[in-house]
Design a binder for these strands. Structure first.
Length: 287
DNA sequence: CCGTTAACCTGAGAGC
DNA sequence: TGCTCTCAGGTTAACG
């Protein structure tokens, strides 16, 4: 579900709430996520202190003492929730998805602190939680990831080198985490609309000017999305509490049959499918 | 090596 | 009300 900006928001929230806290206990209610949760996690995490919270593309990284890294990936439907203890389960929304009513049967993991509980909830179970126990394991796990859009090294030259020989559609290329990491379906749709590039266009057909636009707007869109607290979709009804607002800025995603917002363009956004994923674009200006 | 497709899951919403 | 169908913010194994 969450792409880079949403995970970044969760990361920042966790920094304010659980950083430097000591883990008292960990419960695994259901180990069957995308990967089976290692049995020894509760034992290994007990009494560990949280030193740092980091994020790498769409992965959340909880850095513990003794070079332990708890990796959380949210898949399509994973969210984290903080529960204040003792009082009758009052939820503090950290995920920015406003799940006021927490469907408890999908609470798979609970990390208990002194007065707080951190809960991993994931109906579809495409996400996972993994413990890496050394810097070496850590580096190995992430070695295949491409640069993130906001990395200074993510520039025209880098992207050109990754794209110029590819026969895949540019949308599929941008979703490939080994090329650019952190983008997902929403933001790729947005970036291509800003760049006025047809998502079906093949990589090797893109000119250097188009590559330049993609680099520019990848940075712009991701930056703005973080500023806006990410995108919260499909839960608009629950309007209390904090929630992201980038969904109000969408130009393409979820805007089937609506007017293209690009300047001087009066085209209509259409929905098509590319690699089985909803794709929104304007035929008139995205060439 | 490359590109494409199906598969992994549950729930919400639409249409009948 | 209930049934069936489609779709959902992701990733990757397997195939040609």
């Amino acid at each position: 579900m969450p792409e880079l900006p949403e995970v970044e928001i969760v990361k920042r929230s966790l920094e304010k709430t659980i950083k430097f806290k000591k883990i008292k206990q960990v419960f695994i209610k259901n180990k069957n996520l995308r990967f089976k949760i290692q049995k020894n996690i509760p034992k290994k995490l007990k009494n560990e202190k949280i030193l740092r919270i980091e994020r790498k593309s769409k992965y959340l990284i909880v850095n513990l003492t003794k070079s332990k890294y708890l990796i959380i990936h949210f898949g399509m439907s994973g969210t984290l929730h903080l529960v204040k203890k003792n009082k009758k389960n009052i939820y503090t929304n950290l995920s920015f998805y406003n799940q006021q009513k927490l469907p408890k049967k999908h609470n798979h993991v609970e990390i208990v602190f002194n007065r707080l509980k951190l809960i991993y909830n994931d109906p579809r179970r495409f996400g996972f939680i993994l413990l890496l126990s050394s810097k070496k394991e850590f580096l190995n796990f992430f070695k295949k990831l491409g640069l993130e859009p906001l990395d200074n090294k993510f520039n025209n030259k880098y992207l050109m080198s990754k794209i110029h020989h590819r026969k895949k559609k540019i949308k599929d290329i941008l979703l490939d985490q080994s090329i650019v990491s952190g983008l997902g379906n929403i933001y790729v749709n947005e970036i291509l609309n800003y760049s006025r590039i047809n998502p079906k266009k093949l990589g090797f057909k893109l000119g250097s000017y188009e590559i330049k636009l993609i680099v520019k707007y990848s940075k712009l869109v991701i930056k703005k999305a973080i500023t806006k607290g990410g995108s919260s979709i499909r839960d608009f009804k629950n309007s209390k509490g904090q929630k992201g607002s980038y969904q109000n800025e969408f130009r393409a995603y979820n805007r089937n049959e609506k007017k293209c917002i690009n300047r001087y363009c009066k085209g209509i956004i259409k929905r098509i499918f590319i690699s089985n994923r909803s794709t929104f674009f304007c035929k008139k200006c995205q060439k």
